[in-house]
Amino acid sequence: MAQAWGTLHPPTPQPVSAAACPDIATLCARHGGRADAVIEVLLDLQHAKGCVSDADVAAVALALNLSRAEVHGVRSFYTDLTPEPVAHRRIRLCRAEACQSVGAERLRVALEVRLGTAIDQAGPDAEVALETVYCLGNCALGPGVMVGDRLVGRATVDRVLAALPAGEDGDP
């Protein structure tokens, strides 16, 4: 609990200036400097750096004239935004109903065994992260898996692994 408290409220907040984070100021300007575009800004940061750090939260708050609490609240609400870096290689397995009906849970177990990692349990240093996602919009060709930014339909362990680092676009 103490740790969680510490994360939420850094004991000694570091002063942040927009000048110290020109990249973030530029990024915010690209979205018109609009406070309502804060999720767009955070998504860009997440994609560029693999996470949205506490320092980023503070810098974005400053640039968009929001409170840190508001930006922190946004970061903590949305699954895509993470305070810690996500693994470089990600396998996101759809575990919603349509994919369940064609064996998503069997595939989950098989992937866990093959990768030697439990789903949603990867730490920041993990080689490959296996993660749950609910629906990739490929419900007629399940199980659906997103490997990096590549969608794999009628997924099997072999097809997923083939798509992993340098594989072909989910081809059989």
Binding site: A140, V152, P172
Partner: peptide
């Protein structure tokens, strides 16, 4: 995307 998920690009 669905067509590509089963190999349309290849």
């Amino acid at each position: 995307a669905a067509a590509r998920s089963v190999g349309a690009d290849a």
